[in-house]
């Protein structure tokens, strides 16, 4: 039996996506996390050689050096006969096909724009009118640079985890925030991703 597989850089992305897809009745994947982007790309050729899949989605963060990573991923796919090879990510997610009609999809978190991360994706799923979020957003912004212990690239991460700390159950993980209904799986950010998943499965 062939399976549908999603590859992730790490465990956080995996849990967020699995929970989101569960809410859309699309929890039909084999979810596989790699230890970071280098491992994901470094083992991609072998993952493609696997004989047990028909649809494979690759989900990566648009953090540092995403352009270089984008070209590394697409060149592995091109070398394995996947077409068409796009020059840049499509806002709706990228999908490529090989001669055996196997499909590989590429999604760059949060929205294929080459900026942001899984935390920005999650921030986009916070319910309209959430009163705590603007506060979390502001509070993190207000920390002076000299007192920040996190890198500039981790601002969104700091904000999301601040926001999560102020929920009914402080410290809930991002993935579980769907189950606890802190997050809204029908926001436009989620729809774009879910539509990409649906066209990957088509």
């Amino acid at each position: 039996m062939n399976t549908n597989r999603l590859l992730f850089e790490g465990v956080d992305d995996k849990h967020v996506v699995k929970n989101l897809l569960f809410n859309h009745n699309l929890d039909i994947f084999d979810y596989k996390e790699k230890e970071g982007i280098d491992r994901l790309i470094g083992t991609l050729h072998e993952e493609i050689e696997a004989t047990d899949w028909n649809r494979m989605g690759i989900i990566v963060d648009a953090d540092v050096d995403v352009r270089a990573q984008w070209s590394r991923v697409t060149s592995v796919l091109a070398a394995n006969g996947f077409e068409p090879v796009p020059s840049a990510p499509s806002p709706r997610g990228t999908i490529m096909t090989d001669r055996d009609s196997r499909k590989i999809g590429l999604w760059i978190m949060p929205d294929n724009s080459l900026q942001g991360s899984i935390e920005d994706f999650v921030a986009g799923l916070i319910r309209d009118g959430d009163v705590v979020w603007p506060r979390a957003d502001r509070v993190v912004d207000e920390i002076p640079d000299s007192e920040r212990r996190f890198k500039a690239s981790h601002v969104s991460k700091a904000k999301i985890h601040t926001w999560l700390a102020w929920q009914e159950e402080p410290g809930t993980r991002m993935g579980a925030a769907f189950t606890k209904r802190y997050l809204d799986p029908t926001r436009p950010q989620a729809s774009a991703f879910v539509n990409w998943i649906r066209s990957l499965l088509a």
Binding site: G42, T43, E46, E47, A50, T51, D52
Partner: peptide, 12 residues
Amino acid sequence: RLSTIIEEDIEI
């Protein structure tokens, strides 16, 4: 390559 396949539990 076989190392990768075994470490990553890939069905070849």
